[in-house]
């Protein structure tokens, strides 16, 4: 399999006696990208992650993580991949530093090097002041950051985060996103499973939508918007002038799917891309006065909601 992918699966399937948790998954994550995994509860996100780490055996299919087979070479995979589980726990009676020392030892990092990396990682996560406090006294956000510090001391090439921002306050969540961006700027690939679509859209290069064990959509947000919303770019044009003429002019703007008058002087265009320049030109050429232009980019929340609306419609139709 090609080198440019850090994760590549083919026909990956996991059955738990009777129920299929992951079905025929073909997932590809490119080197250096942040890939978001979305999907309702029980759609197979965590199961996929566990298989990628060799922590649970697939029923069928093949996979490569950083070029290794997690089933046959789990140690090579786990030495290079940092994993933050959806529920992180630490040894409460040990201090943050002691917890990290244990992990460093399990990774076979030489003592001196380990201590250096631990200090570095704790400082980077803003935990330097509490490094020698028992983890029992830590808040949820601090634990989450300690989990990230643990990942950093491994110097991973790939980081897998399972719902890392759940339960974090908005400020902490934002910091978390910054850390993810920082990882990417260091050339580390990231697989991020989350329910917080706004956050996923903010950091991910590409996303995959899981539904009932299948990956039903995959691509950049723009691609998904085109596919599901038939565009997804909304341009609001505020202009003065004869309504019918303006409407006609705006309809002729290339890549525009529809134009709706909203109120008085406001028109809304649904387009496949950012058509602000063309819209402005159209208004002016039609003799109107352009007052303002506003762009609303395609929105993952909308894509998600629309997709599942359609699924529901279809299943309702099938039932009828």
């Amino acid at each position: 399999m090609a080198e440019e992918y850090v994760i590549e699966t083919r026909g990956l399937t996991k059955e738990y006696d009777g129920t299929v948790a992951v079905r025929d998954l073909n997932l590809r994550v490119r080197k250096g990208e942040v890939f978001g995994v979305l999907g309702p509860n029980g759609s197979g996100k965590t199961t996929t992650i566990l298989m990628l780490l060799g922590l649970t055996d697939p029923t069928a299919g093949e996979m490569r993580v950083l070029g290794f087979d997690p089933m046959r070479q789990p140690l090579s995979v786990k030495a290079r991949v940092g994993y933050l589980p959806d529920q992180v726990g630490f040894y409460d009676e040990l201090t943050a530093r002691e917890n990290l020392i244990y992990i460093a030892k399990l990774n076979g990092i030489p003592r001196k090097e380990a201590y250096r990396r631990i200090d570095e990682a704790l400082a980077q996560m803003g935990l330097a002041d509490v490094a020698d406090r028992p983890v029992a006294t830590f808040s949820r956000g601090m634990r989450q950051r300690l989990g990230l510090a643990e990942i950093l001391i491994k110097r991973p090439q790939l980081v897998i985060l399972d719902e890392p921002t759940q339960g974090l306050d908005p400020q902490a969540a934002r910091e978390f996103l910054d850390i993810i961006r920082d990882l990417r700027s260091h050339g580390i690939s990231v697989l991020l499973a989350s329910h917080l679509l706004y956050q996923v859209q903010a950091v991910c290069d590409r996303v995959g939508l899981f539904h009932k064990g299948r990956m039903v959509l995959e691509g950049t947000v723009q691609e998904l918007a085109r596919q599901i919303l038939g565009g997804g770019y909304r341009v609001q044009v505020e202009a003065e002038g004869p309504r019918e003429i303006l409407l006609q002019a705006l309809r002729k703007v290339p890549d525009t799917l529809s134009v709706q008058p909203v109120n008085g002087r406001v028109y809304e265009l649904l387009a496949q891309r950012d058509v602000r320049p063309e819209a402005a030109q159209a208004v002016v050429q039609a003799g109107g006065k352009l007052l303002s232009l506003m762009l609303e980019e395609p929105n993952l929340e909308e894509i998600y909601a629309r997709y599942f609306q359609e699924v529901e419609h279809e299943s309702a139709r099938a039932a009828a």
Partner: peptide, 12 residues
């Protein structure tokens, strides 16, 4: 304590 998956995610 939810430490199991974290520990087994190490190369052991």
């Amino acid at each position: 304590r939810r430490t199991m998956s974290r520990i087994l995610a190490q190369p052991i």
